[in-house]
Every structure is written in C-alpha cells, then in structure tokens.
C-alpha cells in the first residue's frame, strides 16, 4: 500500500536529515584525517638577498618552509605576520600576502623579511653582537573552508652574531694595506662568500679595491687572518678609511668602515 503523501514527505525529510548528518560526519572525519596528515618536509630554508626597495639600503631575509599536504582539502588563506624586536627598537614587522597550499601535494610557505642595514640602523650591530630578540609570529589559515586556525608564537630568540667581536685593523705601507680581520661565527649557518675591501682616501675617493679570498666559516668557527690589499701608485690611504663588505650570491652586506691611521 502506498503511504499517504504527508507521510512520504515527512519520511523523505527524515531520510534527508539522516543523509545530511552522515555526509557531514564523513566530511568531518576526512577533514580530521587530512589535517593530521599535514606535516613540514625538509628543513627550513634561509636566504639573504639585496633589498627590493630602490634607494633603501638593506637586505632581505627569506625564510621558507616546505609543507606536505597529502589530504583532500587545500590549506588556504595562509597569512603569516612576523615582528622582531631588538633592545631599543623594532627590527622587522611584516605581513605576507595570503598563500595557498593545494590539496594532495607539497608547497612552500614563504616569509620575506626586509632588514634595514643602513648605517643608521641598529640592525648592523647585530652583525657583531649577540642579542636576545623578542619575536611574535602569527599564522592564520583556513582549512577545507570550515576550520580557521590562528597560531601565535611569541617569545625570545637568542641571536648569535655571525661576525661576533669583528675586529678590522688596517696597517698601511707605501704599496700595501695589510688588513687584519678576526671574528667568531656565533650564528647557526655557514658563512660563505667573499669579503670586499675598498680603500677610500681622506677626500672620499675610492682608490683601491680588493676581493679577499673566499670565506667558509662554519657555525662556532672563527676567522683570524691578515689580507693584503695592493695599493696603486697615487693611492695614499692614510687618514682615509677601509670599507669592508661581505659579498655573497645576490647580496652585498656592508660590515664595517674602519679609519686608517
């Protein structure tokens, strides 16, 4: 016997309700499983390069982290904000544009931090001085359009100076400027690159430049060497200064401007 119309309607609504509930629970189960599968892959990457802003002397620190998202749903609208303070002022404050990590694959989240290395910036002090930096990192993200995550990571970071105790002593003779350089690498990365020494005369005119031998100082290592900078005829460095910079792939970092006695 065929059920009455109202009974069929009420039963259809009941069945639909059950189906919706089961579908929602299956969806949530897949979301929970997919979220649990998200994991970082590889080690965080750091890369220095020249600053992007014309006319502003600075470097860019690019932090990258590969993430594996083998689940069914994308991790979208990932917005990373970071602030870094050192005693006496803000070093970095930045908010990244939203990034998306597609479902079923791997992706790279990136945080680009501009670091002002102009002569007036106290960031330069961090090249040769250890410090305790205050850090706040916010990460907002949306998963499967249903969950929103807000992560705050605050606290202090110990900064190890890459050129701790940097000492540059230029000694001039008639044909050569001997440059004694010593420091300890308190940072956590290998220092590779070359040092560029530029001799500037008292009038402010550069009269000699020399690329010093390549550096490769591991974390915890030290450098204590003397490099000769040949002086061309007519180049009298006395009363001038020696500019020392570290050059690496894609960047030049001014280290020190040392008067030449």
């Amino acid at each position: 016997m065929r059920s009455p119309p109202l009974r069929r309607l009420s039963r259809a609504l009941l069945v639909l309700s059950t189906l919706v509930l089961v579908a929602a629970l299956i969806f949530l189960a897949t979301v929970a499983y997919s979220v649990s599968e998200i994991s970082p892959s590889g080690t965080p990457g750091t890369r220095w390069s020249d600053g992007p802003t014309a006319g502003v002397q600075g470097l860019v620190l690019t932090l990258t982290q590969n993430l594996s998202n083998p689940g069914l749903y994308p991790l979208s609208d990932v917005v990373i904000s970071a602030s870094l303070w050192y005693p006496g002022g803000a070093l970095v404050h930045l908010t990244e544009a939203p990034q998306t990590l597609a479902a079923g694959g791997t992706g790279t989240l990136q945080l680009v931090l501009p670091v002002n290395t102009s002569a007036s910036s106290r960031a330069l002090d961090l090249l040769s001085q250890d410090a305790t930096l205050s850090r706040e990192v916010w990460v907002n993200a949306s998963y499967a359009l249903t969950f929103q995550f807000h992560l705050l990571l605050a606290g202090n970071v110990s900064w190890g100076a890459p050129f701790y105790g940097l000492s540059v002593t230029p000694t001039a003779s008639t044909t050569t400027l001997e440059v004694a350089v010593s420091y300890h690498n308190h940072s956590s990365w290998d220092e590779t690159g070359t040092m560029v020494a530029t001799v500037v005369q008292a009038g402010g005119v550069a009269c000699a430049a020399q690329t010093l031998p390549s550096l490769n100082v591991p974390p915890g290592g030290a450098l204590d060497q003397t490099f000769p900078v040949p002086l061309p005829s007519g180049c009298d460095p006395r009363g001038g200064s020696l500019d020392l910079a570290l050059a690496g792939p894609g960047f030049v970092l001014p280290l020190v401007e040392e008067p030449i006695p």
Partner: peptide, 22 residues
C-alpha cells in the same frame, strides 16, 4: 615562549545544524 593555537569551527556547526532542522 608561549604557543597559542586557536581553532574556529563555526561553519562545521552550521553544517551539523542542517540535519536537526530537516
């Protein structure tokens, strides 16, 4: 330092509310 993770799930509740509404 402290790590604070806050998870919001409002859309999930809205989806689950469809079943009792029906």
């Amino acid at each position: 330092g402290p790590l604070v993770l806050r998870v919001l799930y409002t859309p999930v509740i809205l989806i689950l509310m469809v079943a009792p509404a029906l």
